[in-house]
Amino acid sequence: MAGQGPDHALAVENLSVAYPLKGRDKSGARRRLLAVDDVSFAIRRGTTLGIVGESGSGKTTAAMAAALDAAALRRARQRVQIIFQDPYSSLNPRLRAAEIVREPMLHAGRTNRAEQDRVIDELFEAVGLRPEQKSLFPHQFSGGQRQRIGIARALSTRPSLIICDEPVSALDVAVQAQILNLLKSLQRQFDLTYLFISHDLGVVQHMCDEVAVMYMGKFMEQAERDSFFAAPRHPYSRALLDAVPTIEAAARPRPPLVDGAIPDLSEPQTGCRFASRCPHAMPRCENEVPLLADATGAAGHHRLACHLADEIGSAASG
């Protein structure tokens, strides 16, 4: 399922993930929850794809499934690493910082101790930690410094793809800027490819070259950064963008979301998952699943899963 084209660090086609549930449905089949439904994406080397969505949208599941699948390819494991959201629980409290960074190299079978030490020294410097901090334990670091250790750990096997799972959500705003700047400079320095998962559209706009908006297991919209932020087309993308509190005073009046029930993903979906909350929904939206297709009139790559694509496309920049 996951492969690598010449220009792509990762290509995922038709990825679905289901969790088994207790009980059986009417036909006697095991019930299951379809957390990720037929998602495809590719990330060009050295670039960043952002997956945005609210809690429960499946964005983390999709990324982790893509990573696992890539890891299933022989020797691929060391090529994909993850930076986690919580710098407190994602570091082993009983290991010294240098050993935390060393671990992935051991798993990858790089047993030359001198070589490991060289990589550790190099990465401590690259992420802005001092050499004497190598022998400290995680609790002796601040949250931002811990996230730096997590980043050094992710880099130690020289991965070609790093999944950043809400890497700054648990940090104070001033520290967030430091970590985001670090991730960007490391990307240039080591030619890294990021799959960047976030609920924060401001962060995604800053970090990503391409954006995918996910809702209830499906990609709703997928586009190059500039095309997306200049003219988001999907009603859900617009609702998300409008909901972000901005320091620019001018509010954009758009129809409010409908307070509808969220679909039950343990049942087969017959229509658009967003229809129950969409201010523009029409009967077709409940009866036919919209497919991701090229948006009309967009500059560059811009795909959209919405039956109303043509109606709202022209007024997109509003």
């Binding site: 601040s142 931002g144 705003v173 001033a174 700047n181 962060v203 706009q205 500039d226 620019e248």
Partner: peptide, 28 residues
């Protein structure tokens, strides 16, 4: 000033692209 500047606030002007966010050095 730092608190306002260090956050990547969403912007409708997509062409505006900061390479680096202004940082507040150090920690509290």
């Amino acid at each position: 000033r730092g608190l306002i500047a260090c956050v990547p606030h969403i912007s409708t002007d997509a062409t505006r692209r900061l390479e680096r966010l202004p940082e507040i050095d150090g920690i509290v």
